[in-house]
Write a protein that binds this DNA or RNA. Structure first.
Lengths: 206, 206, 206, 206
DNA sequence: GATGAATGAGGTTTCATTCAT
DNA sequence: CATGAATGAAACCTCATTCAT
């Protein structure tokens, strides 16, 4: 009850770091495959080839594991999104090329465990801590888009750049989602093209 | 699992029908509020002011309740979406007006428990039965859009109508989702306008 | 988390009352035999011939069971202690007889699960809720003694009646404890006599 | 369980002795503060600033630590109790003075971690090894009192000296206990006086 | 000697579901 | 038809103890 502080182990030795890594990796895998609620700590520990005690040594509970995976995931995605070279992009005088680059980049970002990405939405709703985290991240992503559109301002015909950013982000995100999870009769290439068309025509007078 | 003569009761008397209705209504409410996994049958029964025994008299299990609610939900949405008078719409020679009408209609459709709609995505992933159901429904909705775009074909500049339908549907759906759940700094009107702009410019050479 | 209120079942049907009784009775038995910390809910449920689920239907947790048993125990003891007929006792002009009657009465009271009584002390220390409860009860018992001594005031040579009550109560309590648990070489009768002697000589000039 | 060549380390170097001492000290502190069952080995090791491995190097298990502390505690108390100079005491021809000296001495003895003393009773019940140990110690203390009363025999009016010793010991012990743990409305001085009065009047015809 | 990561038995608790009344 | 008590599998989590470094 009045417990001796935070109880979670911070691994100092290499062995401990590996164990924690194992659990995180396995957690990501299982959450992605079966969803948060249908995955339990025992399953994760077993699949990670680790005793259940170790699970609770490194993570206060299942939720905390999820949150750590979440943070890591966001960092990876951010890193990936930031790889885009704005200097280069801004030099493109063809708007469609810009959009294409962006879309391509987001798709690449989502290649990092797209299944997990889907879980995030679920968790967001069931836990305020997760919600806060995700919202923060989303805000950051949005800011990024806003900034980009701003730099391209004179070529863009949309007035409300904030709103445009929201719409564009959403469209890209969801198309990726469709490509990854819904297997529509429509093929990936086609879909991507239409998306790029839609956004380009929306932003630029071509 | 699904033995032919399953124990579910089909209510014939008015009392039974009311009991079942109560459970469905309450289930919808609680699933929407707290999510499928965080809502338990006892809570539903209690909130519906019904004995837990009655719950299991009318529904094989929790999942079956969800599925029944799902079906009802789809029927309601479909009914709502179909209210749009295509004859009228087709007469509009302004494309933007068409899109506007459609968007407005989808928003209206989503006014029917938007929270529950969100739950659907989650459930889809965790259960194949639900997945099948939802996919079928989504296909129907998509067909609808395809049909509509077809009728407007000569005015549309997009070649691949199937893909366009997917994109358009997605964009509308998700914007509604954003409006209902994410409270962005951008206001609803603005967002709706941008959406309509985007789709119009995408489909029509204005 | 934000749970539907108090969760504990209040048995309305006879069956439920019996189940709850069973658990209480078995809990008392096991706590007495093995001590609070060495008794677990599963053991209690099993010994009570009841599913573990039923245990948690009627008691929030092990502690709550303990507290309910505690309260019941106090009520029984109180009832027993109150059976002493003060009218009669006060008529005794022999002080030793008075003390004897009181001691006899306390012993009788402790015949009600003396083992459990011992557990109380333990629990008192490990839980503030229990502590509060026990302290209240002890205060009541003390008041009773104070009242009694007051009524006998003119025959008593002790000035500080409050302190005397504390001392007397303690002596009686502990002697009973010794008789029940420590098996000294000294026999019960002897011990009781010495106790009565000690208290009589303390209170009265014989 | 207790295999001959048990794995416990007997510290020979100064460092080892210090480590063991640390653990004993910290164990005493934590057992006293939170009770045996609510104190766990990891907490002790941590608070003692020692690795959990060291704990189990010096003590077979948690119980063994408790027992070692117990033994040490008894030795300290005994040493303290024996400091009383019987030659001197026996010269007192005032019985009250004798009792006063004894009580004072016991109180001093209990100043040595009174909290731990309370834990002893608990442990006694839950473990036969502890029970044996404590009983032996109690017997020794009792013998001491018996011896003392014997030496004062001609001045004492009680016949059964054994029984008297039990009663007297109990009364002193428990009063100390009350003084240390129950904070009654009655003050310490008062209580001590009443205790001395009670015992004196019991033993001597004053 | 000292360290702390790892273990897993066993305790606590929840909840979907059954069934006697 | 309705009721709610009972069930127990399975989730969650703790902690005494071992052992490789």
């Amino acid at each position: 009850m009045e417990n001796s502080m935070s109880r979670v182990r911070i691994p100092k030795q290499k062995r401990g770091q590996e164990t924690k890594r194992q659990i995180i990796e396995t957690g990501l895998k299982l959450f992605s495959e079966k969803g948060y609620y249908r995955t339990n700590s025992k399953d994760i520990a077993e699949a990670a080839d680790v005793a259940i005690g170790s699970f609770y040594a490194y993570f206060r509970d299942k939720k905390m594991l999820f949150i750590e995976i979440l943070q890591e995931h966001f960092e990876l995605i951010s890193a990936c999104l930031n790889k885009i070279n704005f200097e280069d992009v801004m030099k493109m005088d063809n708007g469609r090329e810009l959009i294409s680059a962006i879309v391509e980049n987001v798709i690449k970002a989502h290649e990092i465990s797209p299944e997990f990405h889907r879980e995030i939405d679920i968790a967001k709703n069931s836990d305020p801590d997760v919600d806060r985290l995700v919202s923060e991240y989303e805000k950051k992503i949005l800011q990024n888009t806003v900034k980009m559109l701003h730099q391209y301002k004179e070529k863009i015909r949309v007035k409300d750049i904030e709103a445009a950013a929201v719409i564009v982000n959403m469209a890209v995100e969801e198309t990726v989602h469709i490509i990854k999870f819904t297997k529509p009769n429509v093929n990936e290439m086609q879909l991507k093209n239409e998306l790029i068309d839609m956004i380009s025509r929306y932003l630029f007078t071509i």
